[in-house]
Amino acid sequence: MLDVHRLRIFRSVVASGSVVAAAANLGYTPSAVSQHVAALQRETGLTLLERAGRGLRPTAAGLELAAQADAVLARIGEAESVVADLRAGRTGRLSIAYFASVGAAWLPTVVQRLTTQFPGVRLDLRLEETVPDDPDERADVQVVVAGPGVEPGPGFRSHHLLDDPYVAAVPCGHRHAGRAEVELAELACEQWVDNDFARGWCRRNLLEACTAAGFSPAFHVEAHDYPTALAFVAAGVGITVLPELAAARLPAGVTAVPVVRPTPVRSLHAVVRDAVAGTPTARAALAGLHAAAAAGRPAAA
Rank of each mutant, 00 (worst) to 15 (best):
L7C: 05
F10D: 03
R11T: 11
S18H: 08
V20F: 08
A21V: 11
A21D: 15
A24D: 15
N25E: 15
T29Y: 00
T29D: 11
P30Y: 03
S31R: 07
V33S: 06
Q35I: 05
Q35N: 07
A38Q: 05
Q41L: 03
R42C: 04
L46T: 06
L46S: 13
T47D: 13
L49K: 07
R51N: 05
R54S: 15
G55A: 08
T59C: 05
L63P: 00
E64R: 15
D70R: 15
A71D: 11
A71P: 00
I76W: 09
A79Q: 13
A88C: 06
Y98I: 11
A100V: 08
R113F: 02
G120D: 01
L125W: 10
E128V: 02
T130A: 10
T130I: 02
D134F: 03
D136Y: 08
D136E: 14
R138I: 05
A139N: 08
P148Q: 04
E151F: 00
P152C: 11
G153N: 09
R157A: 14
S158R: 04
H159N: 02
H160F: 15
L161S: 07
D163Y: 07
D163H: 09
D164W: 13
C172A: 15
G173N: 09
H174S: 06
A177W: 01
R179C: 02
A180I: 01
E181D: 10
E181M: 02
L184F: 06
E186F: 00
L187G: 00
E190Q: 00
Q191G: 02
V193P: 09
G200I: 04
C202R: 15
R203V: 08
N205P: 02
L207P: 09
T211E: 15
A213H: 01
F215P: 03
E222S: 11
H224F: 05
Y226K: 09
A229H: 01
A231R: 12
F232W: 14
A234D: 04
V241T: 08
P243L: 05
L245T: 13
A247S: 13
R249D: 14
G253T: 11
P258T: 02
T263L: 02
V265P: 05
R266C: 13
R266M: 14
L268T: 14
H269G: 00
V271A: 13
D274V: 01
P280W: 03
A282N: 05
R283Y: 01
R283T: 05
A287C: 04
L289G: 06
L289D: 02
A291S: 12
A293T: 03
A294K: 02
A295I: 10
A295W: 08
A299S: 12
